[in-house]
């Protein structure tokens, strides 16, 4: 092939630059706040948000009431126990919804191609990821905390038991809300890494369920330590820790689950940021 034939058009014509279009819309430095406003519009304008969070609220409240009703029918009274831990079952089921929404918040942009529009408008990958995380985290934190408090109040009202302490109340509401929001944020980071909704949701459900299932089948005595660790640090047991009904009696206690979730989320989010910056869209 011969050298390309090149001939440039003149830039100047009659002393005036050819292109001189100036938009009347002023240009200012866009901020994280602008990105947050944009992400808020995005999350509230798709149906999946309403559906996943709606189903979560229904599951938490519905299962909570059913469990309390079941206990009230049985002979065994709560006695010296508080009614608060009965919220555990609804939260465990609701976590699936939070995972789904977390993954969809970013992976659906890859599925639809919206991510290209998003990153063209806001080329800073860090800002996009931060804005999505903030909006998602605050939304899920608020809804799960309020719902957990509502479920707790219903259960306590339905059953006679020991009155829960203030500490227990805070962990069973704000603690649960924080844990769920962090779990969702972890899912968001995984969704950003995997960029495929179904794959990321499946992986996250595996993360929630597999450690417990695997531990159940570790019969060999040489695996006892691994089995114990899987039991103690599996996500269902960590949720139970927040309700002071640890399945194992050892391992994390108090607010530990929230700190563990925060550390794991921060690590995966770091990878997600790194990958988003390096990869083609």
């Amino acid at each position: 092939m011969t050298a390309p034939y090149e001939q440039q058009a003149p830039i100047w014509q009659g002393g005036q630059p050819l292109g001189s279009y100036v938009s009347p819309i002023p240009v200012r430095r866009a901020t994280l706040g602008d990105a947050v406003a944009s992400e808020w519009t995005k999350i509230r304008s798709v149906r999946s948000t309403m559906w996943t969070l709606g189903v979560m609220v229904v599951l938490m409240v519905g299962v909570g009431v059913l469990v309390a009703w079941g206990v009230s029918l049985s002979e065994a009274a709560l006695g010296a126990d508080s009614a608060l831990p009965l919220g555990f079952f609804g939260v465990l089921l609701g976590s699936i919804c939070v995972i789904t929404l977390g993954v969809l918040t970013i992976a659906s942009e890859y599925g639809t191609g919206m991510i290209r529009t998003t990153l063209t408008a806001c080329p800073s990958r860090g800002r996009v990821l931060a804005a999505k995380s903030i909006v998602f985290f605050l939304l899920v934190l608020t809804i799960t905390t309020v719902t957990a408090a509502l479920v707790g109040a219903i259960q306590v009202a339905m059953l006679d038991g020991r009155a829960a302490t203030g500490q227990e109340w805070v962990r069973a509401t704000l603690g649960v809300g924080l844990f769920m929001a962090l779990l969702g944020l972890l899912s968001l980071a995984v969704g950003s890494l995997i960029r495929h909704s179904a794959g990321a949701i499946t992986l996250m459900i595996g993360v929630v369920l597999l450690p417990l299932v695997m531990a159940m089948f570790m019969f060999s005595s040489s695996l006892v330590d691994v089995q114990e660790a899987l039991f103690e640090y599996s996500i269902p047991s960590q949720i139970s820790v927040l309700y002071d009904v640890s399945m194992t009696g050892s391992g994390p206690n108090g607010w530990d689950p929230v700190f563990i979730a925060a550390a794991a989320t921060a690590a995966v989010m770091g990878f997600a940021f790194f990958a988003l910056n390096r990869r083609d869209v």
């Binding site: 944009s38 519009t41 798709v46 149906r47 999946s48 639809t112 191609g113 919206m114 290209r116 806001c122």
Partner: peptide
């Protein structure tokens, strides 16, 4: 780039609105 680079579940107005907000338009 390509016409499909929008979220299909969102209305045309909202697709443009979130874009406008991110750049303070």
């Amino acid at each position: 780039l390509d016409a499909k680079a929008m979220h299909g579940g969102r209305s045309a107005y909202n697709n443009l609105l979130c874009l406008a907000q991110s750049n303070r338009i």
